[in-house]
Design a protein around this nucleic acid. Sequence first.
DNA 1: CAGTATCCTAGCTGATACTG
DNA 2: CAGTATCAGCTAGGATACTG
Lengths: 117, 117
Amino acid sequence: MPDIENYRCTVAVTLDVIGGKWKSLILWHLSFKTLRFSQLQRRLAKVTQKMLTQQLRELEADGLVHREVYAEVPPRVEYSLTELGQSVVPILELMCQWGKEYLEVSSGEEVPSCQVG
Amino acid sequence: MPDIENYRCTVAVTLDVIGGKWKSLILWHLSFKTLRFSQLQRRLAKVTQKMLTQQLRELEADGLVHREVYAEVPPRVEYSLTELGQSVVPILELMCQWGKEYLEVSSGEEVPSCQVG
DNA sequence: CAGTATCCTAGCTGATACTG
DNA sequence: CAGTATCAGCTAGGATACTG
């Protein structure tokens, strides 16, 4: 759907898709395993229910995340990465590595790998 | 300065540093050449003077951008990437490539490389 | 559990004016 | 030129309450 004419460079395209406040983090956590809404919320810790819902809907509309609803009581909804969603993981891996090194030079101490999954 | 305890994963660290609304784009444009304030503003097109100033100050404080002031009339201020700033460029290159491919699959046509520099 | 709905505030934009 | 300052207006985001 994006209009090419609107973009001076394709970095801006990527930012429109994964640059939302919580999107990268959501994708990162989903890259390890399929998660339910409440599991995602716990992992993000500071996100509000409203924002998590909103960002997930946008990721779904952009084709990065798949939403699977199970007709159960209590209801269960699982989120996973689509193939397109998987394709952004290399970007996130670089971000993870860069953040680790940034912390290490600014703190002077060894920093553990990301605590996720 | 970031407090390790605040982060569950280092992707969040990176997002704190380059996740600002205009920061990735600023770094991307500076990765090609040193730019003056007005040049940056033209390349970003939609950024307000206030936000550009603010984001540049934060990037400077985080050590990614160097600000060189020349004592001339009219004044000239040039922004460039520090070594730390250079180290985020691989992330931006991946973003550029991903955005290009995303546009191509969603539009069905060939998309030019980023128009920058 | 996985969301809506509502209200309210913080942050961004746009326009304009001013300064070293 | 490269900012700073101010103010109106909008929208992103937060807090809280409620629901299938």
